[in-house]
């Protein structure tokens, strides 16, 4: 109940942020521009539209999550709205979860809006839509859940600019960490290989949530992969949220 009240207030606050609409505008622009890009391409135009459209959805979703997520808790501390809130009979973790869920709700609404623009474009051109298309978008949302948790974690102890940099780094590392796997396969047995393995274990692998290629090229995806990716997303998010709660619980609000 208390978490819900905080979540709804966070949603009300986030939905007023102008950055959100700017990003939404550019996302819509990118999706529509994919049509022009398709005109310049030799080959299957539908593939270009799908590819650019899904990539825009994912990229702008992540930007929204990071730019709003990193300011959420910081703003409450900076403007001292947190003082009266935490003096009410709520636990600190309830506040943090409320903020998190409120932002997820905002991102969900934004993702739905972007998907609608995308769907209109696809339907206008009478391209076929498969179930995998919606699954790919669902996994974009799973990725957003994780990125939001990361943004929230950094927001608990850092300024918005630093948090944004940290969160963007997390996103980039997450999408490039598969390179480390290739490296591990090529390294000779020894200390460095073990070190690289341990590093790979802790670094996020956000490519687990990327099903764009499969959707664009109509490749089949084994259900086991979906299950694995979902579990990976849930556990990683819970882990990051637990870290955020631990940091936030012991923090002094000077």
């Amino acid at each position: 109940m208390k978490i819900r009240a905080i979540a709804l207030n966070t949603f009300k606050e986030a939905i007023r942020d102008r950055i959100l609409y700017l990003l939404l505008f550019f996302a819509a622009l990118c999706i529509i521009l994919s049509r022009i890009l398709a005109l310049l391409t030799i080959g299957d135009r539908a593939k270009i539209i799908m590819d650019v459209g899904l990539a825009s959805l994912s990229l702008f979703g992540v930007l929204m999550a990071i730019l709003i997520g990193t300011g959420l808790v910081y703003k409450e501390i900076d403007k001292r709205t947190l003082y009266t809130l935490l003096a009410k009979p709520i636990q600190r973790y309830q506040f943090l979860l409320g903020k998190y869920l409120g932002l997820l709700l905002t991102l969900f609404v934004m993702l739905v809006l972007m998907t609608l623009v995308f769907l209109v474009l696809i339907l206008l051109h009478r391209y076929p839509i498969e179930g995998a298309f919606f699954l790919a978008i669902l996994f974009v949302f799973v990725e957003l859940c994780l990125i939001t948790a990361v943004a929230l974690l950094f927001s608990c102890f850092s300024t918005p600019i630093l948090s944004t940099l940290f969160s963007l780094s997390f996103y980039l590392i997450g999408h490039l960490s598969w390179g480390l796997e290739t490296l591990i396969n090529k390294l000779p047995q020894g200390g460095i290989k073990t070190l690289a393995r341990i590093l790979y274990l802790f670094l996020p692998n956000l490519e687990n949530f990327n099903f764009k290629t499969e959707v664009v090229h109509h490749l089949s995806i084994p259900p086991k992969i979906f299950l694995y990716s979902s579990l990976y997303g849930i556990f990683y998010t819970v882990f990051i949220l637990a870290l955020a709660v631990m940091v936030f619980r012991r923090r002094d609000f000077i």
Binding site: M1, R4, A5, N9, K12, E13, R80, T81, T84, L85
Partner: peptide
């Protein structure tokens, strides 16, 4: 608190209603 500052996009009633839910 001293020099209180609250969510400025809420009306007085909405604000008290939010805090009442807590």
């Amino acid at each position: 608190p001293e020099n209180p500052y609250f969510y400025d996009y809420l009306t007085a009633t909405e604000f008290l209603s939010f805090y009442s839910d807590l």
